[in-house]
Amino acid sequence: MKSQTIKAPILKFESDAWSYYVAIPKKIGDQFIDGKDRRIVCTINNSTPIHSALMPKGEIYSVYVKKDFMKKYGIAEGDEVTVQLEKDTSEYGKPIPESFQVLLDQDQEGNNLFHSLTKGKQRTLIHLVGKVKNVESQLAKGLAIMHHLKEANGELDFKRLNVLIKEYNNRK
């Protein structure tokens, strides 16, 4: 399956954990699932692609849509949008910032510890680095992550990691 395009409204969850989603019919979503792998790339109204997962929700799948994304693209709850789905075949299920890839390439021990983590934890760390746009801040976060992985022998402790990130940010 190459890609699939549907029209669907932006809906609101009845939960505080997530705000908005697009409903994907089960018949369409099933085409993108490979075993336990539900990772997709979703493009809404020709916007920036969203690396996401098809989340089971009764007789449909949902694709989460963040408030800041909706604001950026002028989308509101109830708006009908064009959704293009493709299978995410990337290594991590989201793009890795170049600055973090350079650190992984230069630090074999850190690279090995990073790759010993689950794909979900790898994505979380990639997200931490990539959510800041400033390359210096990305490098500081990346260095803190590598330091933490070595210090904790590959066991993630997010409280300790956050302390290290603050320390590395203050070194600038």
Rank of each mutant, 00 (worst) to 15 (best):
E136D: 15
S15K: 11
Q122S: 03
S99Y: 05
S47Q: 11
H51Y: 13
D79H: 01
G78V: 05
L85V: 08
G78L: 08
Q4T: 09
T43N: 03
M1W: 03
P56V: 09
V129Q: 09
Y168S: 13
T82P: 01
N45Q: 12
Y61E: 03
I60T: 12
I165S: 05
Q84R: 13
E59L: 12
K71D: 14
K71R: 05
L128C: 09
L164F: 11
I33P: 08
N46R: 12
Q101E: 08
L149A: 03
N170D: 13
Q84P: 02
P56R: 12
Q122K: 02
K2D: 15
N153Y: 03
R123Y: 05
L85C: 05
L117Y: 12
L161W: 00
Q31S: 09
G142N: 03
I6K: 01
N111M: 06
E59F: 08
Y64D: 14
K2E: 15
P9F: 11
T82W: 00
K133D: 12
F158V: 08
K150T: 05
P56N: 05
Q122N: 04
S52W: 11
R123T: 07
K2Q: 12
N112P: 04
K150D: 14
K36Q: 13
K119Q: 12
L117G: 04
Q84H: 05
A8Y: 02
A53K: 10
S3W: 07
H148Q: 09
F13G: 08
G120D: 14
Q108Y: 04
K26S: 14
E91W: 06
N170W: 03
T124L: 07
G35K: 07
R160C: 02
Q101G: 01
E136T: 11
V83E: 01
V81G: 01
K67P: 13
Q84G: 05
V135A: 09
T89R: 08
